[in-house]
């Protein structure tokens, strides 16, 4: 009996894991390819309603505070959703026009188009993603909003040093409340930015400009429709740009 037992075949106790690993690897590949890791973000905006507003209800913008930004773009032909030569906007090209204060009166506008009066409108080219208009317009907006930006910078220093509270979350929320109060402080000189876009302007540029409002802590901005005065002011600049290219 004892002899028989000792002769019993010893089973290999180790299990071969190779097929298991193979299967796991396949599953991992599947999950990696089918998932979205990057979640989209949202940018909240508020537009006025389309209802007619009576004159006395309108908030009159002080002349010195207004900055009008006009986004212009070029369209290119591209293959989109099955259409071979669909007209889409080129996100890497375009022009940005801006001017301070109120739009000129009809008389002044005539003089501007004739070249008798200096055009208050300036232009910057968008160019590639990093260079071009965005840093330039950021400088301009920062200059207009410098009182707020300086105060926010001070506040940010305090926030970084955890001066409001030793609790990180509490520190954060106090900072947010204070920053909001500064942004809406009517005793400071704050600009009112009016953003307009031509039909061919690319959506990416519009979002970029809206972004600048956040970056520069501008609380008062609006999206408006382009009007004839704006396009008339843009005309001499555009024709000059075409001449320059020749």
């Amino acid at each position: 009996m004892a002899k028989d037992l000792s002769r019993q075949k010893k089973f290999e106790t180790r299990i071969d894991f190779t097929p298991m690993v193979d299967m796991n690897m396949l599953l991992i590949t599947f999950f990696m390819l089918c998932t979205t890791m990057i979640k989209s973000q949202t940018l909240q905006i508020m537009l006025p309603t389309n209802e007619e507003v009576k004159d006395e209800q309108k908030n009159k913008v002080k002349q010195s505070e207004a900055v009008t930004i006009i986004i212009d773009g070029t369209t290119i032909e591209q293959k989109v959703d099955g259409i071979n030569n669909a007209q889409v906007s080129d996100p890497n090209a375009g022009m940005l026009f801006y001017y301070d204060g109120m739009p000129p009166t009809a008389q002044d506008l005539l003089k501007i188009t004739n070249g008798e009066l200096e055009n208050p409108m300036k232009q910057i080219a968008f160019g590639s993603e990093t260079g071009g208009a965005m840093p330039a317009i950021r400088e301009i907006l920062r200059e207009r909003n410098k009182e707020v930006v300086a105060k926010i910078a001070d506040l940010k220093k305090d926030w970084k040093e955890m001066k409001f509270s030793s609790n990180e979350e509490k520190n954060d929320s106090i900072y947010q409340v204070k920053a909001k109060a500064i942004r809406n402080d009517s005793t400071l000189k704050r600009p009112v930015v009016i953003i307009k876009a031509t039909p061919s302007a690319s959506y990416a540029h519009v979002v970029n400009v809206l972004d600048e409002m956040q970056i520069n802590n501008i609380s008062r901005y609006q999206i408006d429709r382009i009007n004839t005065v704006d396009s008339a002011m843009m005309m001499p600049l555009k024709s000059k740009a075409i001449e320059g290219k020749k």
Partner: peptide, 27 residues
Amino acid sequence: QTTPYSVVNIVMDNLQTIKMNKFSLMT
């Protein structure tokens, strides 16, 4: 991002008309 503004504007304007003037843009 290559959408011309005129196209986005139609959608925004439609929303403004029915007084849903608060919305967000996905980025």
